[in-house]
Each structure stands twice: as structure tokens, then as C-alpha cells.
Design a protein around this nucleic acid. Structure first.
Length: 308
RNA sequence: CGCGGGGUAGAGCAGUUGGUAGCUCGUCGGGCUCAUAACCCGGAGGUCGUUGGUUCAAGUCCAUCCCCCGCAA
């Protein structure tokens, strides 16, 4: 088949690779190169880099809904369109181009966690299970009919980055099964139950701000759900302290103020949350490298200081 | 040339007005203890990121380059 692949970040790579390996004729449509890093170096999206390596034609549009995007799609004349973390909304005109329609790979058990960062939000919310859903792309935000679903368990200490990798691989498998069912004519479309639908917002920097008036579990989930991006943090005086990794403890609590720190290079670093002490395992001070909290404490003490 | 912090022992840091480099941990050896994230004694380990300059003397001042990181995007 001729397949137009619309995807941008790492999450889309395993799916793209799967399609190439199977031997479909591909074209990649992705976001324009973006400035990245301290010197704002213009960087191509991962799917573009992959496509270039494998001689797959690449098209980049700010908005594929606009006439040039539509024209490019029509020009490629795809049988099928596949989207995976594309990052742009499609128009009815876009969707009408491929004869077999458009399939989306989404990182949640729809209709829950519609939106931009379903994997992270599932972890932040403390979910123990999530999954990949393939669906017929519709005009709304992840509202199309469900095709296939694969569930996956979330490890209690798993970070969003780790789950991302596993789900990207799973997503490719779910997509493979979906397409082969499509070719076999055995796909069943199941409308989403709107009453069960939830939407999650795009993740912003502020979503990484920790709140120690919450439970240890909530703070821990926030830390792993925002790792590696945007990263969890708290204020230590007027400096930002990034917190990369935490661990639950069973330390007894008294009347300590929330957010207060205790510990040493030997024992480790602990912060007081609503219902207990949470160990801070890895952190990063402003201007410093990411390091184990115990290493950080070799050079300076945080005993009695308070995180806000 | 977007703003800013930093490169000193294996690790994390300190180093005051320029004058033979310190702290905590680890490590090695010895001791003590029922035991310990315990304690005591002793040792090894650094041409202080690069290159050049100022000076009787530079980790410390100046210049340059390399590398790491936070913010912003």
C-alpha cells in the first residue's frame, strides 16, 4: 500500500520502522525543524531523520490543513494515512484524501486520556494500567472509532520516559495488527463511549512543580510522570532544585513542616510530604549536573531547609 | 553573538585582601564493638579544564579556547 505517515517524535519511530520493514510505500509528513537546545540549533524531528536515512520522502508543513499540505498529500495519493503523535489537527479535507481513511495510534485506553500527553498523565494520576489504542482518525481530539486495543501494566516506579519506550514498541505492534485486519477486511469500528471520556492537557513546565502538601504517592507519581520532560522541581530559597527520582519510605512522621528536608550523605535525603517522608534519590541544583542526592550532600547540607 | 552558573584527589564541595592546596565521603592498612548510616588511629591519591600574560610569587588577577549545566526559546 501507499501510506502517508504523519508523525513527529520518538513515539512514532517504531511504527514508522514497522511500516517500512513490511514494505509499504511511504511518505513522511512531519512538523518543521524546530530550534532546540541552548543555542537554539534547528533540529529535525526524529521521524524526519529516520526517513532521510532510509530514502523515504519527507514533507514538512506548519499546518497540513492549509492548501499546500493538502496538495502534497493528494500528490502522494496514499491508500491509507497513519498518524502517530503528529502534533497537528487534521481537516476533513485531509481525512478524505486516502481511500482507506486515516488510522491514529494513541497512547492511552480511549476514551480516557484523550489529548497530547496521555502517557505522562496516566502516571501522574497513579494509574496502574494503560495501553495503546488504534482508531479511525476523526475531526475531534482523539474522538474517532476504536479499532484495536493493547493493554500494558505500569510499573509503580516507572518513569514516563521508560513507559514511553515500551508503549512506542507496543504501538507499532498494535498498528501492525490493525493494518493487517484492515487488509483482511475484519476490522470492527467501535464508537467511543463519550460518557467515559477524559481529556489531558499538553504538558507544560509548570506541571513539573511539586506540591508537598500532597501525599508521598502523589509527589512520587508527579516526579516519574514528568521525567524526563518537563522534569519535576521545587524551589529551594530562590533557586530551582530539580528532582529526578524519588522513592517511598516508611519513616515515621511527627509535626514537621511540609517540604522540610532531612538526611545526610550516608542516610540519603528526605522531604516531608502530607502523609510521610519521601526519599529524594536523584536531584540537580541550578547550574549543576544531575547527581545522586547522597553525592550532593557530601559537599553541602540541606538539613532543615524547606522546599516550596 | 539571547541571559546566567560552573570546571580544585575516585565522588560532592571549600579555598578569605595573590604567599608550598583543605573538608565530607569513598579507598587502603590497623584497632575497637553483640551490633551499626557507628567510632578511633594511620596511609595513598591533585602539574587546581586549555594556552598564553601580569608578578619575586597565580587555584586566586587578565586574555583566549575547550567542556558541563540552569533559564529562555
Amino acid at each position: 500500500m501507499r501510506i502517508a505517515f504523519l508523525g513527529t517524535p520518538e513515539f512514532a519511530l517504531p511504527s514508522l520502522e514497522m511500516l517500512r520493514t513490511i514494505g509499504h510505500t511511504l511518505a513522511v509528513f512531519t512538523q518543521p525543524d524546530r530550534p532546540v537546545g541552548r543555542h537554539a540549533t534547528l533540529t529535525p524531528p526524529p521521524t524526519k531523520a529516520y526517513a532521510l536515512e532510509h530514502d523515504i520522502p519527507v514533507f514538512q508543513f506548519e499546518k497540513i490543513r492549509l492548501p499546500e499540505g493538502v496538495a502534497a498529500l493528494k500528490d502522494f495519493a496514499p491508500d491509507l494515512m497513519v498518524t502517530a503523535a503528529f502534533g497537528q489537527l487534521l481537516s476533513a479535507e485531509n481525512l478524505a484524501i486516502p481511500r482507506l481513511g486515516c488510522i491514529n495510534v494513541h497512547g492511552s485506553l480511549l476514551p480516557k486520556y484523550r489529548g497530547a500527553a496521555p502517557i505522562q498523565w496516566a502516571i501522574i494520576d497513579g494509574e496502574t494500567e494503560t495501553g495503546v489504542t488504534t482508531m479511525m482518525t476523526a475531526i475531534g481530539m482523539d474522538t474517532g472509532d476504536i479499532l484495536l486495543v493493547d493493554q500494558i501494566a505500569i510499573d509503580p516506579d516507572e518513569t514516563a520516559g521508560e513507559l514511553f519506550e515500551r508503549m512506542a514498541v507496543l504501538g507499532a505492534e498494535t498498528l501492525r495488527r490493525t493494518i493487517s485486519a484492515l487488509e483482511a477486511g475484519t476490522l470492527i469500528r467501535i464508537p467511543q463511549d463519550e460518557s467515559q471520556a477524559t481529556k489531558c492537557p499538553m504538558l507544560k513546565k509548570e506541571h513539573g512543580k511539586l506540591d508537598f502538601s500532597q501525599s508521598c504517592a502523589s509527589v512520587h507519581n508527579r516526579v516519574r510522570g514528568t521525567n524526563p520532560w518537563p522534569g519535576a522541581y521545587a524551589m529551594l530559597g530562590d533557586e530551582v532544585l530539580k528532582i529526578h527520582k524519588t522513592q517511598k519510605t516508611d519513616h515515621a512522621i511527627c509535626e514537621e513542616p511540609l517540604g522540610i528536608l532531612k538526611g545526610s550523605a550516608k542516610s540519603g535525603l528526605f522531604v516531608r510530604c502530607a502523609d510521610g517522608w519521601l526519599e529524594i534519590v536523584e536531584l540537580q541544583a541550578t547550574g549543576g549536573k544531575r547527581m545522586r542526592a547522597k553525592d550532593y550532600l557530601l559537599g553541602r547540607s540541606l538539613e532543615g531547609k524547606v522546599l516550596l
